[in-house]
Amino acid sequence: MVTLGHYLIVSGLLFTIGFAGVLLRRNIIIIFMSLELMLNAANLSLVAFSRFRLSAAGMPNYNAQVFVFFIITVAAAEVAVGLAIIVALYRARQTTHVEDVSSLKF
C-alpha cells in the first residue's frame, strides 16, 4: 500500500539529489539542472498533499495544483533568464566553471 509518506520520502530524496548536485558539481549548467530538480521535488510533495487532503466534494484539493502551475511558470522564466546570464558569462570569461568566476568571493 502506497501511503503519503512514500511520496514524501521520494520527494525528499529528489530534493537531496538536487542539493548534492548544487554542492558537489562545479559546472554552472549542471548546478542549474540540479536547481530544477529541487523545484520539482517541492512540486511532487505539493501534489501528494493535494491528493491526500480531499476537498468537501471528495475531489483533490486543487489550490495546491494551481500553486504547482505557478511554480512551473516561474521556473520556466527563471531557466530562460539564467541561461541568458550563463551565455553572457561565457562571452565575457570563456568558462562555465564556477571556480573560474570568483571576483565576488570574499
Binding site: 502506497v2 503519503l4 509518506g5 491528493r51 491526500f52 471528495g58
Partner: peptide, 30 residues
C-alpha cells in the same frame, strides 16, 4: 558537501517519520 546533503536527508526522513498523516493511505475519490 556529501555530509551536508546526507544530514539533510536524514533530517527529512525523521521529520516525515514523526508525521502521523504520513502512515495513512490516500483516501478514495468521490
Amino acid at each position: 558537501g556529501a555530509v551536508v546533503a546526507l544530514a539533510f536527508f536524514i533530517q527529512i526522513f525523521f521529520v516525515i517519520g514523526q508525521l502521523s498523516a504520513a502512515k495513512q493511505p490516500f483516501p478514495p475519490l468521490s
